[in-house]
Design a protein around this nucleic acid. Structure first.
Lengths: 235, 235
DNA sequence: TCCATGGTGTGACTATCATCGAACCATGGA
DNA sequence: TCCATGGTTCGATGATAGTCACACCATGGA
């Protein structure tokens, strides 16, 4: 019974919002925001509910096109449906994280320090890396204050040295590179296909390790050393 | 009792989503998406509930920082808190309006034809105007496929003739101009400060008239004539 | 074939909340 | 001062939906 498929967009919007608007489901979704898949029981633990409850929640999220499920043996892997759902969750975080009087961030330091934003680096690490890339002249902000970026000749060479083919990345059918603002820093980090490629490269080089249960990303000793050497980045 | 102010962003997100995720409240919010303010009773009628119910809803929306209220005499005017809330609602529409098999738009034609998207023109009118501005060479897409736009010399002159000071608009502290994709057309129209200035100019020239109860925008006979004359735009 | 494990359906309980009528407060005009 | 109007608060009611224990189905390995 795919409820969502029979509705007008107007009627679907509040139902989708309601689907997100339940703490256990929200925990699941924000965990999946790193773009990876989780099994039903993993998500049950993360949400803090029993498997039957989690199953009901996941069914609802699937009906409303927020997540997709793929069966693999005995396991069923759930993941966010697409980047637009991720964008919705990020937009929600932006509104939820609005500065308020005497606001003190209560987010775990680990998560503020380095984390993924769907499929690219965010947090303080993501922001400093972004600033460094701008300072090095690898990236250029094409429009006056617009979020879209372009890569300079120096940047093409630099990214190539990291094993990133800029031309191939640009050819992907998604936004190439832009300043992605997230809730904890309120400053841009590198988003888009290029940001994703950068995270992938960093993971491959074992500069960073992703946490399984959250969006946290840990900087390895090797990563700390290489980032300093290559970018002059103090972490 | 401002519940939202005592919460971490993480706990606030699902509550905000839940605040949107109730049909009556969603109707109110999407109505306010044109950026204008409405009184409590107006919103009650639009949502299809009695004044006491609407009052409770509006209180919740206010607590969760989605709308603000300003008292004027006996009336209390509610409006969306800021552009980020509008962005959230649009992101929600995008997910809600995802193409589905045999999808038939059930939106009133009037709303599809011309409407506002927070504070700029959308709908088929917004889209054709956008395409025309590109064809005339007033706008240029700065990045490869990014949404940010810039204005050409021809555009600066053209907008000036409409009474729009491009330099002043660019100086505003918001995104200058970009392709804003909305749910009904799935094609970009002109968003940002420049889009807002264009709508304002069109309103001032009596080319369009806004509807009070919805996001609909009506093209006046004069507007039809002038748009044809100035842009060669058949409506 | 049997068993262990991952995952889902059922039914009962409970809490939340949307709703409205009626009463109440506040503003502006007569 | 009184009244009309806009708007909110209160209290009661009913529906929705989140929760878990238990039972059930499916897959994979022994």
């Amino acid at each position: 019974m795919d409820v969502a498929a029979q509705e007008t967009p107007d009627a679907a919007a509040p139902r989708i919002a309601a689907a997100i608007g339940e703490p256990a489901r929200a925990r699941m979704l924000y965990c999946l925001l790193d773009g990876r898949a989780r099994t039903s029981t993993e998500l049950a633990a993360i949400a803090g509910v029993t498997p039957p409850t989690a199953s009901a929640h996941l069914q609802r999220l699937t009906n409303h096109q927020l997540v997709t499920v793929t069966a693999q043996g005995r396991h069923r892997y759930y993941r966010l449906r697409d980047r637009r759902v991720a964008a919705l969750l990020e937009a929600l975080s932006v509104v939820a994280g609005r500065p308020r009087d005497a606001f003190v961030p209560r987010t775990p330091i680990r998560l503020r320090a380095a984390r993924t934003c769907y499929d690219h680096l965010a947090g303080t690490l993501g922001v400093s890396l972004h600033d460094r890339l701008m300072a090095l002249g690898w990236l250029s902000s094409s429009s006056k204050k617009g979020p879209a970026y372009d890569v300079t000749a120096a940047g093409i060479a630099g990214f190539a040295a990291l094993g990133i083919d800029v031309a191939a990345t640009r050819a992907l059918r998604r936004r190439f590179a832009f300043g992605c603002v997230d809730w904890s820093e309120r400053r841009p980090h590198l988003g888009g296909a290029l940001g994703a490629a950068l995270l992938e490269a960093a993971e491959q080089k074992k500069w960073v390790v992703r946490d399984l249960d959250s969006r946290a990303v840990e900087l390895t000793p090797r990563g700390r050393r290489d980032l300093l050497a290559r970018f002059g980045l103090e972490t």
